[in-house]
Write a protein that binds this DNA or RNA. Sequence first.
DNA 1: ATCCATGCAAAGACTTTGCATAGTA
DNA 2: TACTATGCAAAGTCTTTGCATGGAT
Lengths: 157, 157
Amino acid sequence: MVDAGAKCPKQRFMDFLAGKHLRLTSQRRTIIDTAFGTRRHFTAEQLLAWAHRRDKSVSRATVYRTLPLLTESGLVREMDFGKDYKFYDPNYAEHPHHNHIICQDCDKIVEFESEQLKQLENQISQRLGFSVQAHRLQITAHCEEFKQRGSCKKKGE
Amino acid sequence: MVDAGAKCPKQRFMDFLAGKHLRLTSQRRTIIDTAFGTRRHFTAEQLLAWAHRRDKSVSRATVYRTLPLLTESGLVREMDFGKDYKFYDPNYAEHPHHNHIICQDCDKIVEFESEQLKQLENQISQRLGFSVQAHRLQITAHCEEFKQRGSCKKKGE
DNA sequence: ATCCATGCAAAGACTTTGCATAGTA
DNA sequence: TACTATGCAAAGTCTTTGCATGGAT
């Protein structure tokens, strides 16, 4: 079993828990369902709000205690977009190598993958004496709409 | 005047202050000297410690109030290396497009630039309808020493 | 039955801010 | 002189943690 895509993220995380002899509680189940039930990036506070809506027994402490497990499993990645709070990206479970373009004007975020980019990064790293473990590329940019109209509809959302 | 390298970072920051009609106080001068007097990344607390060593009148509040000015000027960049605190990199003043490789085992950080990488990023961004404003690439990797010996001397530094 | 997980509220770590005073332009 | 900057300490914000209880395996 090498194909990471063979099981759904939720199942893979449950396997991760089992592998560490950690228990699958109803709160954790709710948090997992919530985290992998969206493609959106979320903050700790948002995850709490969403999970709490599904199950009132999910507390802030448990969310904060589960988040490190999610990132440790590699299925969710902690992201810093220069805001005051951290975002968590659940899409690494299915797209382990994706990158982000952030529109500076409307904060729209587009995810993309590039085999060519990955190879170039590997090549450069090798030349420098490193073997790549993970990439993290963020491009800050102005989007088409901004270029054409000088602003974005989404601005301020 | 387009050549960003024409003036030293310190002078460029003083120009930035002047342009905003902000004052050059002795505390700010010390902070600037300190920040641009190193090539090392630093945390807010380190910057405070170093600056305070040069001038006892530099307070934590002023450091925290100056840091946003440094990043706003574009001469220093806020970096998140996944630690609990943020790092500030003063090398963007002289190398606006550099990237980072972080050794996961010893935390060694190597900075590098690549015209090819930059071009590829521009190309991809354009295809997606964005015009690039800034890049931010971090590669996490294992270093040569780790590959050869299974560990790094620097580990735990 | 064992031992991990949870909620709550207190404690922490890092930043920001109000206010009276000092200092630059 | 006018107005920004500073230090100090209090206040915030986001996270972590101790403890007694509950619950998964």
